[in-house]
Design a protein around this nucleic acid. Sequence first.
DNA 1: CGTGTTCTTGAGAATCCTCAATGAAGGTGG
DNA 2: CCACCTTCATTGAGGATTCTCAAGAACACG
Lengths: 254, 254
Amino acid sequence: MLSPLIQKLGIRSPLSDHDRKALQQVCGRVVSVGAHQDLIEEGDASDHVTFIRSGFACRYRILPDGERAIIAYLVPGDACDLYAPLLGHMDHAVATLTRCDVAVVSRQDFDVLTSDYPAIAGALHVSDLVDEAISREWLVSMGRRSAEKQIAHLLCELLARLQVVGLATSDSYDFPITQADLADASGLSVVHTNRVLQTLRAEGLILLRHKNLSVPDLSRLHAFADFDISYLHLRSSPNRSAPIQLRSGPIRLQ
Amino acid sequence: MLSPLIQKLGIRSPLSDHDRKALQQVCGRVVSVGAHQDLIEEGDASDHVTFIRSGFACRYRILPDGERAIIAYLVPGDACDLYAPLLGHMDHAVATLTRCDVAVVSRQDFDVLTSDYPAIAGALHVSDLVDEAISREWLVSMGRRSAEKQIAHLLCELLARLQVVGLATSDSYDFPITQADLADASGLSVVHTNRVLQTLRAEGLILLRHKNLSVPDLSRLHAFADFDISYLHLRSSPNRSAPIQLRSGPIRLQ
DNA sequence: CGTGTTCTTGAGAATCCTCAATGAAGGTGG
DNA sequence: CCACCTTCATTGAGGATTCTCAAGAACACG
């Protein structure tokens, strides 16, 4: 089974077998972490690079009044602290939401990897740029979409991101995120999050039972949520429908 | 007078005189653009790199119902589309908010610059990471801060960012952003934005007159807005108070 | 079969929105 | 310099959304 990281990078950037092997080797040390555990704390000047191998995690900050703001969801294949040393310290924390397997790579090994394999460095950079695009989309959702559309949009995004790493079918995925975690990511209260989910269910837009989410009519959910997948940059250009050719070569997509 | 771009990069990453000269040379072509003009449209596969030289701009998206969401403010020294080719197309647009001078660099010249001057490439990367941190902070504000604190926080952020490029005193700056632009960046209505500003004025937290913002008691505003400047990464570490030494050398800050 | 977490519901209150209108500021042409 | 026009800021009022508090139900786990 291909690691989710390699799957994710390979979709957006061409990687050679050589690159894949190097990645697989470096990410050998996998640690299992229970739910609701900090992987990285605010202020850390992390000397490791951490990747989510399985499970869900999040970036978050705690405010003075004790409120928690979740800034991003991390799914298998996502990096936690790729560029932390460039900024000197973490300005937010990372915690698991469920039990997770995480790959921990020493910063030294990682630096060797990226300088020996520029295609990997490039693919990781692209992947970080997509994370930025996701942040922007969350800002759009929080600022200008109704609570219902915001949550629906988030569910669409997770479907697409999990499909990339082979953890979702065409219309469903395991959804272990609690309503409290969803609330902190949406800026809503838990109570309202609950009511929003009920509305989406009542409208027949989603089926959510036993920690599994399935979408009866994906195009209807997309239309409702105003979900345009292009911000995830799964293709090199919105106008080009053919997938990127998989070959080793330059980092640039076009 | 040093260009705002060079000022900004130099604060977070060591640049040699050599680097500075190269930057100055490449950013020679400056274009003047009126207020409320698109600099980059959504979907563009830009073949230029654009930097704000003077004036205010923003990243934004228009939703199907016509609403505008502002995702980021751009101030002098900020890049508009640094890594656009890596993602293939712009997933959002960039527009001026006021009259702006922008430096337009051909993608070709830019690529030559970054490969000839790795310190510049590194500094730009760090700068982009800070933009990410700013996005995250906006998410925190939108999700879990009151409208008053959110706007106050934004005003604190702008003060700090403008100080970096020499466009603010210790407690004031020119503030040409309209309440409509502030509303679209905060996810509030124009009416409520107006009332929030009035509250901040009534509390004596800000003075806003004739497009000029000044802060009578900065630490009070910081405390009110829960503003912790460390996310702007103006120092290499929150525990180290000495500024970064200015010398040419490796990209990494520590 | 208890115990803690998560989900759900009700009700009243705070926040924020929309609509609609007025006032103030700035720019332009005569 | 004034009349006019456009943009921006402000105000009032009623309503929608979302919140908090509080409690009970369902579920998961040992």
